[in-house]
Nucleic acid binder design. Sequence first.
DNA 1: TTGTAGGCGTTATCAG
DNA 2: CTGATAACGCCTACAA
Lengths: 349, 349
Amino acid sequence: MGTKRIAEVRQREIAQLARVSQATVSRVLNNDPQVNEELRQRVLSVMDALGYVPDARAQSLRAQRTRLLGLVIHRAPSALAYDPFFSALIASIIDQAGRQGYHLCVDAARTVRGQRAIYEELLRTRRVDGLILVESEARDERIARLTAEGFPFVLIGRYEQGVRHKNIPQEEPCSVDNDNVGAARMATLYLIERGCRRIGYIGGPAGLTVTRDRLLGYRDAIERCGIPYDPRLVVFSEFSEQGGARAMAELLHSAPPPDAVLALDDVLAIGAMREAQRHGLRIPEQLKVVGFNDTPLCAFVEPPLTSVAIDIAGLARAATQRLIDLIEGRVVEPRRLIVPARLVPRESA
Amino acid sequence: MGTKRIAEVRQREIAQLARVSQATVSRVLNNDPQVNEELRQRVLSVMDALGYVPDARAQSLRAQRTRLLGLVIHRAPSALAYDPFFSALIASIIDQAGRQGYHLCVDAARTVRGQRAIYEELLRTRRVDGLILVESEARDERIARLTAEGFPFVLIGRYEQGVRHKNIPQEEPCSVDNDNVGAARMATLYLIERGCRRIGYIGGPAGLTVTRDRLLGYRDAIERCGIPYDPRLVVFSEFSEQGGARAMAELLHSAPPPDAVLALDDVLAIGAMREAQRHGLRIPEQLKVVGFNDTPLCAFVEPPLTSVAIDIAGLARAATQRLIDLIEGRVVEPRRLIVPARLVPRESA
DNA sequence: TTGTAGGCGTTATCAG
DNA sequence: CTGATAACGCCTACAA
């Protein structure tokens, strides 16, 4: 073990004690095959004795890279606080990055100005080698700028193509998304297989891409099975238990009422389920319910909620790997990767 | 807007265009009051035109600090994944750190070897300026080493003092913890106020500090109110819904059965509550239940669960601020800070 | 008040 | 194969 404070052990000190030049120490450190075996051993043993570890700051300056990935979340900390999505995301990114010697720097941008500031602070200061962006907005200004700068970045989640100038060919940004259309189709087919014919769809706010994509999958599934699309079975709602309950109440007034419901979110599904129960319906016998996200809540409600699990770990792993590939100059194809979801059957359907 | 790629704008370029020396550019950047106003303006306008931002890597090397805080989580990513505690923790740290120009680097250590590796990787490489440690184990070897190195760090959560050598006075590590004793006392008193006299305690595994501390608070509260301590009302359990159910079943066999239960954890509390309901007990009329952590689950169970909310944001803020104080050489007193918890009343008690 | 020059710890290019 | 030496971009004595 080192006797000096680690902070004070530099290649210089190693070199002195091993009676070689500092350059040789560097060579040994970088496994230069041309160093004499005896010198190498001498250097290694001194390094070991002093507990030498190279200074990442100096390496960063010299190599012009920090081995740090940035994750920017643009959401207020309070909104972030209890969202398990972020734990899962961060955990998987760290894991994947760590295997390749990268670290993760997480930042949050509270305001729009804050977004800008974060972007400056991480990218332009070259504090990180690349960026993972989540929940980017449609026509996000940052995407164009990052592209223009040639700065490595990967998007998680769907984004909408901005205005494209015909004459300025833009490279498609690298992105990873879950298969919302496919997931909704799968869940709907699952309900149809189990005998449902009038399946309701409870979406989030109507404008959201995720609401639209999953509606597409839902519609595709029923039409594929010869069930006509009935707009009275489609309701949009805010994301809350009350929202789900109201949506359900509305669906129950459509005649004839649905025999199943696909909700965009577990909380919506739970709200819907409870409303149906208040109306005396037994679940799953009289009404089957499927939610989305497979949150811990699912196991705790009565009956336990069948839910579509987004593969967050898969998403994070893929995004991280692609970012590292980008940083290290490898080609990333295809630019857009879709990660499938899976259904977790419980008792509600 | 800059016309060159940002990466290529250094103080050198600014200096050339503004016809001053590079040192002057640096001075302007650092608000040196002695620079001539005209030069300052010239420099500023060139900076602005080129969109100059200083390189954090060079600053880190030069200043010997990175303005990066490290958070090390030693838990498997899968165990981390759906734990809202970490979202909350990370969100609050980022928020507090960001206000002072610091960023957060999150790392996870899967194995014991991994812990060591992370420690090396973050600390000895000087990649971060200080460390926040959570869930440190009793007599954590790392604590001694960090202390010996004089490396700034703050513990979140209780730790046990290691072996102390009488002759080597050790400085108490800086730590922040929630008031487990006080929180349990408060929750117990709340139950007593509401008329309960036979209050059960469902702990986690018996060895855990948190189990012991809260038992202390529980016992203190009842004895203070003249209720004798009855060991038959104290049960230890693993952290799971089944564990809670089993513990409840056991308590119900004690004669006379409890009229309230304090559980170490919301999941345990929910397990207990369900078991009691299966035995036909009405909650809160015949049995009151209080949990810990105020997780999102509380609002979704029937009846909604009264729970003690740990002030994670407060914990994180305090820890972050103390770490920054430590890094910047300010004195931090007291070394050990206790953050109070609060009760969130719902319908179960 | 401004410029010159040295150094932070590393890596990499030269000669020797 | 090894040792000087020059960057990397920034900050800051010290000199002018």
